[in-house]
């Protein structure tokens, strides 16, 4: 070992000596809650999006969830309201680096467009894929629309991405 604490070994040897590989597959089954169940039911059957509206302050949350953070009150499926599949781009990026997707265990394909937008009539912002990999073609304030799959399955994959639209 030299003074800087480095062993002078070939890269291959160093890995053999100093590392053990551990590949644990740790599976989970997450409860998604009644509001999300309703969301995916309606998405599949009616091709519509639902948010949740706080019964106290009226804030419309998208994605829908069970608790309004401002009021600390419960929202139920009765508080779900339809929101249009259109909104306005608030921020964007193009992911251009490799990483392992924890859902699949494989590499997530890149580059891909990824954006923050506000659906019309909602009071929160939301994130999703954007069907655009060239950042010069994106601009904050552009209108976006959800793209639905032909055959709906009742999961987030039914909305593979949002696309930039021009409105008359």
């Amino acid at each position: 070992m030299n003074l800087r604490g480095e062993y002078k070994l070939a890269k291959k040897d160093r890995e053999d000596i100093f590392e053990i590989r551990w590949k644990t597959d740790l599976p989970y089954k997450y409860s998604i809650g009644k509001l999300s169940v309703k969301f995916f039911e309606v998405l599949k059957k009616e091709r519509k999006l639902l948010g949740s509206k706080c019964p106290e302050c009226g804030k419309v949350h998208f994605p829908p969830r069970g608790v309004c953070a401002e009021c600390v009150v419960k929202m139920t499926v009765d508080d779900m309201v339809e929101v249009p599949p259109r909104g306005t781009l608030v921020g964007f990026t193009v992911i251009n680096y490799p990483f392992v997707d924890p859902q699949t265990g494989g590499m997530r394909p890149f580059p891909y467009g990824y954006a923050l937008f506000q659906l019309d009539g909602t009071d929160t912002y939301t994130m999703h894929f954007l069907d655009e990999k060239d950042h010069t073609k994106m601009e904050i304030g552009q209108r976006v629309e959800a793209v639905f799959k032909d055959e709906m399955e009742g999961n987030l994959g039914d909305i593979p991405y949002f696309k930039i639209i021009k409105e008359g």
Partner: peptide
């Protein structure tokens, strides 16, 4: 969030880029 956020999220850098 496993339902809403994980599919499109790319670690910390994605939101920091936004």
């Amino acid at each position: 969030d496993p339902v809403w956020e994980r599919p499109s999220l790319a670690g910390a850098l994605g939101p920091l880029a936004l």
